[in-house]
Design a protein around this nucleic acid. Structure first.
Lengths: 236, 236
DNA sequence: CGTGTACTTGAGAATTGTCAAAGGCTGTGG
DNA sequence: CCACAGCCTTTGACAATTCTCAAGTACACG
């Protein structure tokens, strides 16, 4: 849990990889970098707890994290999976000031932190960054709309195919035999994400395995045939 | 479908009611007002069609509209219901440039339009507005997270209670006998919104009526007991 | 006052949830 | 290196919920 300025970054300016600041010139990038702090978290460590006061925008530099809440019934509901270049916390900086979800490291990770006042400073000085931020939020909203729609879809098979395709796009590596997907979460996590029982997901995955559409190599690794998933998802 | 500047607004500056511009001084409000155009739409008229090129941020001035898509199965999936003070189109101004959903007037309505270039102009000149916009987007994301979670909730009864409470908060009028809710959409619309069959929603509403939790006065008007819905929704 | 649309209700089929038991992987300690 | 404990996952059987199809009813509109 060390905390250092971005200027001390071993590989130089890490924020050049953050899309949020892509509109900045090298000079301004250096200036912004000076405002950023770093932290590292070990697998399983909490980055934010629901109800916490949020002080900073967090940008993922390395590793994956999950954002989740507990439902009234005590089930963990995953809202987001963030990885390199993603950010979170912006809703709570200019609004309620309290985190509405918890965030936990799924792997060892490193993040950039930009406090509220420093972010405001950046936004005032660089309107282009504000517009990029607005665009990024728009993208996130669009993604949520897609998720939302796929939930409205009655068929669970379609929703599962869609989820696997999302994972393949984000965490997959294409090979001639298919796409190797490194799953960020357990079956239980996926089931909760989809809002179904763990057992139901198991059965559906088994069915897909029988049909040679996916193959479970490892609990955290799946070999999937994207083209056949697309058929199922109705995208074709 | 007349189109006039906001300065010609009958009741003076209508944008003073738009939260987005709440940070502006009267003077700047007048300046921004000059950049805004108006349009009126009759009930049933399309404001945007999916796939259209989006040229302007649209702010609802009067009336209600629905934003929706068609699922692959041909079902209409409602994504948002917007009413006075709400806005839409921002995702498509700084990103894909194409609308990812259609918008239709549910009642006669009037809207304010701010074109992309003019909005950028405003955001550059008034960083405070950009921050307000970011905050508003954050709020919308939070709402979507809530919706998302309530869909993750297995029990349909809970989801229905939550929806009715949302409607009561937005479109309800409290009286000693309960809250009179003017429903913006049909039963079919609600069912699609929840992602269930029309018939299932009917049955659930009948059950709620038997338990004297809601009373259907009219297809578009419901008398609901909010406290009992809150019990059902598990909020209490 | 009819006609069409939207809504409600019923019955059986299909899907999913729940509970219980068995299987498999991981890590620790002998 | 093996045995075992603990946890996650899978499978099975049955219960509960929801969907689909079909018929009947209420309401809005011309």
């Amino acid at each position: 849990m060390d905390s250092t300025s971005c200027l001390d970054c071993p590989q130089g300016l890490c924020i050049h990889r953050v899309p949020l600041f892509s509109s900045l010139s090298r000079e301004n990038l250096v200036r912004v970098a000076g405002l950023i702090q770093h932290k590292s978290f070990e697998k399983g460590a909490p980055l934010v707890a629901e109800g916490d006061r949020v002080e900073a925008l967090t940008i993922i530099n390395k590793g994956r994290v999950k954002a989740y809440r507990y439902t009234p019934e005590g089930r963990e509901q995953i809202l987001y999976l963030f990885s390199q270049g993603d950010f979170f916390g912006e809703q709570h900086l200019f609004g309620d000031y309290r985190a509405t979800y918890s965030v936990e490291a799924l792997e060892n990770c490193r993040v950039c932190l930009l406090t509220k006042s420093r972010l405001e400073q950046v936004l005032f000085a660089h309107p282009r960054v504000a517009i990029t931020l607005i665009a990024e939020l728009g993208k996130r909203i669009s993604q949520m709309e897609n998720t939302f729609q796929s939930i409205g879809v009655r068929s669970l098979d379609v929703r599962i195919a869609t989820l696997l395709l999302d994972f393949a796009a984000k965490y997959g590596e294409k090979t001639p035999e298919g796409t190797y997907v490194s799953l960020p979460i357990s079956r239980e996590g996926m089931a909760n994400y989809l809002g179904v029982a763990r057992e139901t997901l198991s059965r559906k995955l088994s069915k897909l395995e029988n049909e040679s559409i996916v193959r479970s190599l490892d609990l955290k690794t799946l070999l999937v045939k994207e083209s056949r998933l697309r058929d199922l998802a109705g995208l074709s």
